[in-house]
Design a protein around this nucleic acid. Sequence first.
DNA 1: AATATATTTAGACTTAATCTAAAATTGAAA
DNA 2: TTTCAATTTTAGATTAAGTCTAAATATATT
Lengths: 120, 120
Amino acid sequence: MTRYEQLIFNLVNESSSHLTADQVLEQLRVLCPTVSRATVYNNLNKLCDARLIRKLSTEGSPDRFDRIEKHDHLVCQRCGKLADAHFADLTQSLHDQVGDAFLAYDLKVFYICPECKQNQ
Amino acid sequence: MTRYEQLIFNLVNESSSHLTADQVLEQLRVLCPTVSRATVYNNLNKLCDARLIRKLSTEGSPDRFDRIEKHDHLVCQRCGKLADAHFADLTQSLHDQVGDAFLAYDLKVFYICPECKQNQ
DNA sequence: AATATATTTAGACTTAATCTAAAATTGAAA
DNA sequence: TTTCAATTTTAGATTAAGTCTAAATATATT
């Protein structure tokens, strides 16, 4: 693992906030002020390919990067904010239904987050 | 409902292939050769806001639009192709876990599609 | 028919992400 | 170590998806 790969892996894993590539760049520049945007994308993609982190495509906002550890997400329908959640595990059930071709799943639960509920 | 709203609603509902905005435009131009890209986006977004269709954010490809009727998706990890699927319904269970804030959910199941399995 | 409201249009603009080709770094072999 | 190949980084250009703008057109209301 290269230095940047390690640093970016750590940033994504230590953050609880599903960083965008831009936010990773911003954080990384604290330590390495000259690092380029392309390096951030290169390494984020490499880490995704290696399944060391995962990419979350969220509607209407740039992709976000998340730790690989299995968990689900709550997505606020109003403000778009993401929150981690742990719902009942579907792996076994889906594996049974899909067969050996099954790899993984992604469950997004849409709701109105407490802050938006308050301000409505 | 305006004429274009209706036409676009029909296209999305009659297609089994999760059309992108560009594909909707292409289809629509068969009937209305002068329709503009902005009109397609305007109406797709209006239909989404009205919950008459839904948007699928898929990683690495443009957003796709789908009928609203409840169903899940299989996503090929290799080629990215989407296929419809019906897995056990989670609505009740999620509603119980999330409470009244719950709105809906989106389940994507990653796998290797039969064609990719063949060619590997 | 007159007027207000909503929709459409073409094209400019924005944003996210990728690509490019040169420079810098790393690592292995001699 | 020096040499050479392979990898990584860089800055900036490019691409692609989607939004925005403001004028023109169409629709609805009185």
